[in-house]
Amino acid sequence: MTRVHDMGGRFGDGPVVPEPEDVKFHADWHPRALALTLACGSLGLWNIDVSRHARESLAPKDYARFAYYEKWIAALADLLVEKGALSADELAAGQAQGESALAARRLEASAVADVLAKGGPADRPSNIAPRFGVGDVVRLRAMPENVAVAGGHTRLPSYAAGAMGHILRVHGTHVLPDSNAHGLGEAPEPLYAVALKAGDIWAHPEHPQDEVILDLWDSYLASP
C-alpha cells in the first residue's frame, strides 16, 4: 500500500526554498525533538527500520499536516507506549508514575560522542552471492508493498515499481528493512544501486539522458 510518506514524483508541492547554511533549526523545540529521539533510540527498544515504520504509520492526515519534527515526536511517543517504556496514562497526565526499569540503559551525556561516532552499520557478513552484477538488466517488483506483512514497511518507492533498470553498483549485503521493521529478523540480502532511465518512469522526462538511481535489495528485483 502506498502511503503518504512515499511522495517521489508527486505533483503540487510548490517550490523548493533554499536557505543559508547556518540555519540549523526553525524553532527552539526542533533540536529538542531531534535529541530526544536520538537519546530514546539508544535505549535499544527498536531499530531504525522500526522507527521509520512508526513515522510512516501516522495517520495520513497527521503525516501531511505535521511539521518534520512533529512527525518524529508523534512516532516517538507511539513507539515508547508500544514498547512499554511509557504508559498512555503517563502521556495523558504529563507526569511519570515511578522510575522505569529501563533507566539503567539511559544515554549519559558522557557517552553521547561515542554513541554518535559508533553509528549503526547495516552491512552484514554473508555467504549469499549477489544474483546480479554491474550492467545486468533487472525488473523492479511491480507492487511497492511489503510482501510478507500486509501494510508493512518497505523501501521500494511507488514511482519506481515495475520499472526496468540496470545494476550500477553492488553495495554488499545489508539488513532487509521489510523484515527488520517487523521483528522478523535482519534477513540480510545483497543490495544494489539500480539505474532507471527517466523516460522509463515519467511520461514527460526533462531530458533523454537523465536517470534516477535507487538502492534496492535482491528480493525487490527479478530478471526481466
Partner: peptide, 28 residues
C-alpha cells in the same frame, strides 16, 4: 495513537515528553 494524548502544540508536546522521560530516568 498514543501521541494524541500529548498537548496539541508541538513545543508543549516535546516539553511534556522530555519531562516524563526525565522523571522516569530514561533521558538525561
Amino acid at each position: 495513537h498514543p501521541h494524541s494524548l500529548l498537548p496539541p502544540d508541538p513545543a508543549l508536546r516535546v516539553k511534556a515528553l522530555e519531562t516524563i522521560l526525565t522523571q522516569k530516568g530514561l533521558v538525561d
